[in-house]
Simulated scan of single mutants.
Amino acid sequence: MVQSRGTILTKLRALKKSETAKALKEFKPTKRLSPSITQKPQAAQTTVLIRRADKEHPELLAPERISDELNSPDVLLWVDIRDPGAAELKMLTQEFDFSPLSLEDALKQRQRPKVDEYPNYYNIVIYAPLDTDVNRELQMTEVDLFVGQNYIVSLHPGHVPALDLARRRWEQAKPALADRVGFLSHIVVDSIIDACFPIVDNIEDRLHQLDATMFRGNRGANPEELLVVKRSVFALRMALYPLREAFNEFPKREHSLFDLETHPYFQDVYDHILRLLDIIDIQQDMVAGATEAHLAFMSNQLNETMKTLTVVGICEAAAAAVFGAWGMNVSGLPLAHVRIGGIDVGFWLVCAVTLALIGLALMWLKRRGMW
Results as ranks from 00 to 15, higher is better:
Asp164Ala: 12
Arg110Gly: 00
Ile126Cys: 02
Leu60Ala: 08
Gly324Cys: 08
Phe197Ile: 09
Tyr151Ser: 01
Thr310Trp: 07
Ser185Asp: 02
Thr310Glu: 02
Phe347Thr: 12
Leu12Ser: 05
Asp211Gln: 15
Thr141Asp: 08
Ser299Thr: 15
Gly342Val: 13
Ile152Glu: 01
Glu292Cys: 02
Asp144Gly: 07
Phe98Val: 06
Asp97Cys: 07
Lys16Leu: 11
Ala325Asp: 05
Leu276Lys: 01
Ser72Phe: 05
Leu24Phe: 06
Thr7Ala: 13
Asp116Val: 02
Tyr265Val: 08
Leu243Ser: 00
Ala288Glu: 14
Arg253Ser: 10
Asn222Gly: 04
Pro84Lys: 01
Asn150Tyr: 03
Trp78Tyr: 05
Leu76Lys: 02
Trp348Pro: 00
Asp268Thr: 13
Glu261Cys: 05
Ala62Pro: 00
Arg368Cys: 02
Leu243Met: 10
Asn123Ser: 14
Gly158Phe: 08
Arg368Tyr: 02
Thr310Leu: 10
Phe258Trp: 04
Gly341Gln: 12
Met140Ala: 08
Gln149Tyr: 06
Gln94Pro: 01
Met238Thr: 12
Phe258Cys: 03
Val79Leu: 02
Arg168Phe: 03
Ala325Trp: 12
Leu12Lys: 14
Ile124Ala: 03
Glu59Ser: 13
Pro223Met: 11
Gly332Lys: 10
Gln139Phe: 04
Asn135Thr: 15
Pro161Ser: 10
Leu257Trp: 02
Gly85Pro: 01
Asp259Trp: 12
Asn120Thr: 11
Ala166Ser: 11
His272Cys: 05
Gln209Leu: 13
